[in-house]
Computed example of a mutant assay.
Amino acid sequence: MASELQVPIIDISGFAHGGQAQRAAIAASVGAAAREIGFMQICGHGVPDAAIEGLKAAIDGFFGLPLEDKLRCRPPSTEINRGYTGLRSERLSYSLGVASPADLFEAFNIGSTVSQHPGVALPAEHFPENLWPQQPAAFRAQIETWFAEAGALARRMTRIFALALNLPDDYFVPFQNRSIDTLRLNNYQLPPGDTRVEPGQMGMGGHTDYGIVTVLWADAVSPGLQIMDGDGDWHDIVPAPGAMLINLGDMLARWSNDRWRSTLHRVLPPVNGQGRLIRRRSAAYFHDGNHDALVSCLPGCADADHPPLYPPVTVGEHLSFKLRGSRGLELNPHSEREAARLLSGSE
């Protein structure tokens, strides 16, 4: 049975207006969590309770619709990372090049669009228009509110990350002013009467997140989210009351030459004491960076004894490889280091 790992709880409320010493202390705490775990619980984030309640109402309202209504929001191709994804449609471990049974979640995605950046030439592959449902009536307003709140927190975290890496706090701004940002609503619950769980099947298979940083809201349901430590063991993570889970993505691992962790994580099929599948909800906001941002090792993160571990790559190229895996079910051949970690871990 997996043990629970204590993810640091960090109050960032003093970062925006605090003095130099307070900002440095917050950055040091964030940097330590980034090095040691790659996950952190952030409080003092300033996200209003009303926005959280609106998010939960939107998740409940949309996933409570009849399947035929949800399917009306399905994109015409898996290459379009928007709208509804049905149960057992994706395999997140494929983003690392590791085969697995289909994942037990349904999802709804929105994200940054070309129309939000008038006069800027952006690839439709990464900035498709959103597919909004007609019902529930308040869904779009509630989700757009959450998208804005989570995005503001993600950008605040990148300023803290920069200070923690001994860089100016605006260092990452040129890499994120036209960022590919995606909000994914996840619902883990099989339809009534459907209890088919294959051996080794996950709610969401083992993976790392693809971009810079993820802002995660999730139900406090266990078993559920698990992260892998440096020894290859899995640990349960339960969100702290009032906190947002923050984890690093592949871009920060590449920038820092793996000094910071893009932590492997997965979601177990949530079950109760009788072994019956129960519901779990989450909302993951992925702040991935500009599609044409070239990510290579940062100054000070490589030396003669620690040469760069990754070749330079643009954010757009990296995301394309990952999404062709998880959504297109093409095993990704470009994540050898992460795949080796997943395959060497405990069950």
Rank of each mutant, 00 (worst) to 15 (best):
A240Q: 13
G242W: 04
A243H: 11
A243K: 06
L245R: 00
L245T: 15
I246V: 15
I246G: 10
N247H: 15
N247A: 11
N247V: 09
L248G: 06
L248A: 08
G249L: 13
D250P: 10
M251E: 14
M251D: 13
M251P: 11
L252K: 02
L252N: 05
A253T: 05
W255V: 06
W255I: 08
S256N: 02
S256M: 01
N257T: 04
N257Y: 10
D258F: 10
D258Y: 11
R259G: 06
R259D: 13
R259T: 13
W260L: 06
W260H: 02
W260E: 03
R261F: 03
R261M: 14
R261K: 15
R261C: 12
S262H: 10
S262A: 15
T263D: 05
T263H: 03
T263M: 02
T263E: 06
R266S: 08
R266M: 07
V267N: 08
V267Q: 07
V267K: 07
L268P: 09
L268I: 15
P269F: 11
P269Y: 10
P269S: 12
P269L: 09
P270R: 03
P270N: 04
P270Q: 04
V271S: 01
N272W: 11
N272M: 08
G273K: 12
Q274D: 15
Q274K: 14
Q274T: 11
G275I: 09
R276Y: 03
R276W: 01
R276C: 06
L277D: 01
L277T: 14
I278K: 02
I278C: 08
I278E: 04
R279M: 03
R280T: 00
R280D: 01
R281A: 08
S282W: 02
A284T: 09
A284W: 01
A284Q: 02
Y285P: 10
Y285M: 06
Y285K: 04
F286D: 12
F286G: 12
F286N: 12
F286Y: 14
H287I: 00
D288F: 00
G289P: 07
G289T: 05
N290H: 00
H291Y: 15
H291A: 14
H291K: 00
H291L: 00
A293P: 10
A293W: 00
A293E: 04
A293H: 03
A293I: 04
L294Q: 12
L294E: 15
V295H: 03
S296A: 15
S296I: 00
C297A: 14
L298F: 09
L298I: 06
P299C: 04
P299T: 04
P299L: 03
G300S: 06
C301Y: 07
A302N: 09
A302M: 08
A302H: 14
A302Q: 13
A304S: 09
A304T: 01
A304C: 00
D305G: 11
H306K: 05
H306N: 14
P308N: 00
L309N: 05
L309S: 06
Y310L: 03
Y310M: 04
P311R: 15
